[in-house]
């Protein structure tokens, strides 16, 4: 059969399929090789040879859920780009490895507020609590909305194991079987591996909230506890002092 333009243009099903193939080429050419190139996600270790980047703890997962629920990403990015001005203001540029367990990632593209990729440890818990309840109580010029309900809402965590299983399905190494747990011990060390055990999720969540007392109110477990726990871990997993300035250039 001789190819005729007309046979495509008069057959809408075929036209749709061929159009989809043509427009997906650009995306496929740019994205697919990244899955095969060794340097795409940097290999970052701690001083004792463990994986530096760990999945979030149960409490941090819930905090992250609240971060997404409240739409924080609409105004805050979590991506420090490799420019001098960003490095001076926010710290070391973000590594691909640092968001490898983020589903979905929170890189963002809009900075109405500052970047949060390395906000962990920058401010005290008390500051975060005061700031989230009413940003203008500490930063008079802020245009961020108030989030007072975070302190009023009890944190719901009954479904935490289901959430962890869902993340496990997309590749986050939470452990369910003994073999998975042992692999995690080898990979992250026992302390972290214990936190990634789905069977102890609820216990771990409560223990971290009790120990951290992120919202300053020991009598209750609030959404504020979870969100502040999440904010305080952002960008803190890699010890950049261990690597010289410029070490990560070789991964690009």
């Amino acid at each position: 059969m001789k190819f005729k333009h007309e046979s495509i243009e008069t057959n809408s099903g075929l036209l749709i399929i061929l159009t989809l193939i043509v427009i997906s080429i650009g995306g496929l050419v740019e994205i697919v090789p990244l899955f095969f190139i060794d340097e795409t996600v940097e290999d970052v270790k701690t001083a004792d040879g463990r994986d530096a980047i760990r999945p979030y703890t149960p409490l941090e997962i819930r905090g992250r859920d609240i971060y997404i629920r409240e739409g924080c990403y609409l105004c805050h990015s979590q991506m420090i780009r490799p420019f001098r001005d960003e490095m001076l203001r926010y710290g070391h540029y973000s590594l691909a490895a640092e968001s490898k367990y983020d589903h979905p990632f929170q890189w963002g593209s809009k900075r109405t507020g500052p970047d949060l990729a390395r906000v962990g440890g920058k401010y005290s818990n008390e500051w975060h609590v005061a700031h989230l309840i009413n940003p203008r109580s500490v930063v008079p010029a802020s245009i961020m909305p108030n989030y007072p309900w975070l302190m009023k809402n009890d944190l719901k965590y009954a479904d935490i194991t289901a959430r962890m299983r869902a993340l496990k399905k997309v590749g986050v190494p939470y452990s369910e079987t003994d073999a998975e747990y042992k692999a995690n011990v080898k990979r992250f060390g026992k302390k972290v591996a214990d936190m990634l055990n789905i069977h102890y999720a609820e216990r771990n969540l409560l223990a971290q909230a009790e120990k951290g007392n992120y919202d300053g109110d020991r009598s209750r477990l609030t959404e504020m506890d979870a969100l502040v726990a999440y904010l305080q871990v952002l960008g803190t997993m890699v010890d950049f002092k261990q690597y010289g300035d410029g070490y990560f250039s070789k991964f690009r």
Binding site: F83, Y93, G244, D245, G246, S249, K250, R252
Partner: peptide, 18 residues
Amino acid sequence: ELNGKKVTTHWNTRALLM
């Protein structure tokens, strides 16, 4: 420079930043 040694690498934004 990386740890006191000169490093030459292909064009990339991270080396550009350094």
